[in-house]
Simulated assay, not measured.
Amino acid sequence: MQRVCFLLKVRQGRIDEYRERHAAVWPGMLEALSAAGWHNYSLFLREDGLLVGYLETEDFAGAQAAMAATDINARWQAEMGEFFEALDGDRPDRAMKPLAEVFHLA
């Protein structure tokens, strides 16, 4: 099982709305994530907008590709893209770059 952690930055003026959106993630999006192999997926948001994401999956590249192939993900990413800084025109799901794991206490 791969453990994946990534960072993104939510725009300061959009933090409250970002929290609200994630309090009511579309049921179809939740189903798509599970079907694509995203497990134990969590998002943590600091008050300054730093977003830390964590998930576990058998194959991160495959899980990303499976989500990219869904219509619901395309719609979600289109709506969520405006919440983030420094995407350089990319979608949030393509901008997340996994951090290198340097320690894990099993």
Rank of each mutant, 00 (worst) to 15 (best):
M1Q: 04
Q2W: 13
Q2H: 14
R3Q: 12
R3D: 03
C5P: 05
V10Y: 08
R11G: 09
G13R: 11
D16V: 15
E17K: 05
E17Q: 08
H22K: 02
A23C: 02
A24S: 13
V25C: 08
W26K: 10
G28C: 13
G28T: 12
E31Y: 12
A32V: 08
A32N: 07
L33R: 11
L33P: 12
S34C: 11
S34Q: 14
W38D: 05
N40T: 14
Y41R: 10
S42N: 03
S42K: 00
S42G: 00
L43P: 04
L45W: 03
L45A: 08
E47M: 14
D48P: 09
L51S: 00
V52M: 06
V52F: 06
Y54E: 01
E56S: 04
G62D: 14
G62I: 11
A63L: 03
M67S: 03
A68M: 10
A69M: 04
A69W: 05
T70I: 09
I72R: 05
R75D: 13
G81N: 14
F83H: 08
F84A: 08
E85G: 04
L87H: 02
D88T: 03
D93Q: 14
R94I: 01
A95E: 01
K97S: 00
P98V: 01
L99F: 01
A100P: 12
E101S: 08
E101P: 08
V102L: 09
V102M: 10
L105M: 12
